[in-house]
C-alpha cells in the first residue's frame, strides 16, 4: 500500500448538474501569441487541439438548446483566428447570450463593426473578454510578447468605438499587494483611451502548462480532499453547471481541455449524468476562488473602496 493514497481514491465526486453554460474551444490551442503563463501552452504552432468550424459547433448547439443552456462562451487559442467566427457567433446568438474570450490583437475595426451589427440584431448580449496582463507595455509585454500591449489596446478601442463594453481580463502575475495599484492603473489607462467605465476581471494564475515553467507547478498537497469538500457549495464551481467542447469531444471545463483527465466523452447529455472526480490540482484553484472562468468580476475583495 502506498504511503500517500492515490488522488483518485480520495478525490470528492462532483454530482451531476444542469448545463447552464457551454464553453466552446473554438480556437483550439492555436494562438497568434505565446504567453508565458498560458495554462494550455497555446502558440502559433500548438495544434494539440485544432480550430473548430461552424459544422463542428452546430451539433453541440443543437444539443445545448435541447438541454436548456443559458449562455455560451467561445475561447481558445485565439478565437479571431477562426475565419467563420462571425458566422458562428451569429448562429449562436439565435439561442442565447455569447461571450468571446480574445487577446484583442486581431480585433480590427472591420470585424468589431460586423460583430456589432450581428449583436444589434438579437435580443441577447454579446460580451467580450480581452486579456491583458499589465496596464503598461513593460508589464504586459513581458508575459504576452513584444508589442502586444498596443495591439490589444487597439482592439479594445475598436470594440468600444462600436458600442461594446469589453471586460479586461488580467491574470494576477503581479504581487497581490499590488492589486489596488494595478486596478487603478488599468482604469486610468483605459479611460485615457476613451473607455469611460472600464470593466475589469482579475484571474488567479493556473500553475500548469507554460505557467508551470514560468514560476512553479502545483504542490502535491494542492488537491481537493473529502474534508475540504464537506459542506462546500458545489454550485460555486463552473463545472457544476457547464461543459466544454472541442474538436476532441466533451471536457469537464475549459482549464482541463487539453488534459486526458478532463475528457468525458462525446455527448453533452451523457456527460451531465455522471459524477466527476475532482482529482486535478487545477480543481484546487477553483475550490479556492470559485467560478474563475465566468464573466463575473473576481477582483480582490474591497477593490480600493
Amino acid at each position: 500500500m502506498p504511503s500517500t493514497p492515490a488522488p483518485e481514491t480520495t478525490a470528492p465526486l462532483l454530482p451531476p448538474g444542469p448545463l447552464d453554460a457551454l464553453w466552446i474551444q473554438l480556437g483550439g490551442t492555436l494562438c497568434n501569441l505565446q504567453c508565458t503563463h498560458c495554462f494550455i501552452s497555446c502558440s502559433p504552432k500548438n495544434k494539440s487541439l485544432d480550430l473548430m468550424s461552424l459544422a463542428d459547433v452546430e451539433p453541440y448547439l443543437v444539443e445545448a438548446e435541447r438541454l436548456g443552456t443559458r449562455e455560451y462562451y467561445f475561447t481558445g487559442g485565439e478565437v479571431f483566428i477562426v475565419k467563420e467566427l462571425e458566422a458562428i457567433v451569429e448562429r449562436t446568438l439565435q439561442q442565447g447570450p455569447v461571450t468571446l474570450l480574445t487577446n484583442g490583437t486581431l480585433t480590427t475595426l472591420e470585424r468589431a463593426t460586423r460583430l456589432a451589427e450581428i449583436a444589434a440584431a438579437t435580443p441577447y448580449s454579446l460580451e467580450f473578454r480581452v486579456s491583458l496582463d499589465g496596464f503598461t507595455p513593460e508589464t504586459n509585454d513581458v508575459i504576452r510578447g513584444r508589442g502586444t500591449f498596443e495591439r490589444a489596446m487597439r482592439g479594445v478601442e475598436n470594440l468600444v468605438s462600436v458600442g461594446f463594453l469589453p471586460i479586461i481580463t488580467a491574470t494576477q502575475v503581479w504581487d497581490p499587494s499590488e492589486n489596488l495599484n494595478v486596478i487603478a492603473g488599468f482604469s486610468e489607462e483605459l479611460r485615457r483611451r476613451g473607455y469611460d467605465r472600464p470593466r475589469l476581471k482579475i484571474l488567479p494564475v493556473l500553475k500548469m502548462g507554460a505557467e508551470a515553467e514560468r514560476t512553479e507547478g502545483y504542490a502535491d498537497y494542492e488537491r481537493i480532499t473529502e474534508d475540504m469538500w464537506r459542506g462546500y457549495d458545489a454550485s460555486l464551481l463552473l463545472c457544476h453547471a457547464s461543459r466544454t467542447v472541442s474538436g476532441r469531444g466533451v471536457h469537464i471545463c475549459p482549464i482541463l481541455v487539453d488534459d486526458p483527465a478532463g475528457s468525458i466523452g462525446t455527448s453533452l447529455t451523457e456527460s451531465l449524468d455522471r459524477p466527476y472526480p475532482l482529482t486535478h490540482s487545477a480543481c484546487y484553484t477553483c475550490w479556492q476562488y470559485g467560478s474563475i472562468c465566468s464573466n463575473a468580476s473576481s477582483a480582490p475583495a474591497d477593490g480600493g473602496y
Partner: peptide, 14 residues
C-alpha cells in the same frame, strides 16, 4: 434573470 441573458431554451427548462 436579465432580459439579454435569459434565453428561451433556458426558460423552457425553468
Amino acid at each position: 434573470l436579465w432580459e439579454s441573458t435569459t434565453p428561451d431554451p433556458f426558460l423552457r427548462r425553468l
